[in-house]
């Protein structure tokens, strides 16, 4: 097991990601943040809080998206527990930033885009991830905002721990 980001590094990275978002979206008038259930939401909660704090904007649209019913591994893997989808605003014509903790094969993001489009036609969709496991993609998906890039092989696992749920902020690589 190897630590990829410790508490301090993780929080510096989150700060940078929040600033990069603000650089591109400034006042977030036409932008919505959407975290992917379940683990992406822990990241997006942090990012949304940081963005609100830095921009001093209170009304940034922020939602959560569950992709269970859009997965492509229904008959090959165990069924996943569905979580709540919570998008209280229209995404029609908006710039949507999808947020997930780890980008691996790209299949989750494929499902997320399908799920998202059932809510309307966004003007654009961007992707923010904390960890990009490059070289393990099975679909042509590239993130727009990357916290940290790692080279991994299929058998390894990347685990992101969050204070809120796991009592620590840390990203580790498990062999």
């Amino acid at each position: 097991m190897k630590t990829l980001l410790d508490h301090n590094q993780l929080n510096i990275t989150l700060q940078r990601l929040a600033h990069q978002l603000i650089e591109n979206h400034l006042h977030f008038e036409n932008t919505a943040l959407i975290g992917i259930q379940p683990r992406g939401v822990l990241l997006s909660d942090r990012i949304a809080t940081l963005v609100k704090k830095i921009t001093k904007q209170k009304n940034i649209d922020y939602g959560k998206l569950d992709i269970t019913f859009y997965r492509d591994d229904l008959h090959t893997n165990e069924l996943h527990v569905p979580r709540k989808t919570d998008i209280e605003f229209s995404i029609e014509g908006r710039n949507v930033v999808l947020i997930d903790d780890v980008l691996h094969t790209g299949r989750t993001i494929r499902s997320a885009m399908d799920a998202l489009i059932d809510f309307g036609r966004p003007k654009s969709v961007e992707l923010l991830v904390l960890i990009d496991r490059r070289f393990s993609r099975e679909l042509p998906v590239q993130p727009d905002y990357i916290g940290h890039t790692v080279d991994t092989i299929m058998t390894q696992k990347v685990k992101v721990y969050w204070q809120e749920q796991d009592k620590k902020d840390e990203v580790v690589l498990i062999d």
């Binding site: 569950d66 019913f69 859009y70 229904l74 569905p82 709540k84 989808t85 059932d118 809510f119």
Partner: peptide
Amino acid sequence: NFKQVLQRPIKKVPT
């Protein structure tokens, strides 16, 4: 969760 899906404009999932 499905009840939530049924309240959306597109009441359908590709599952």
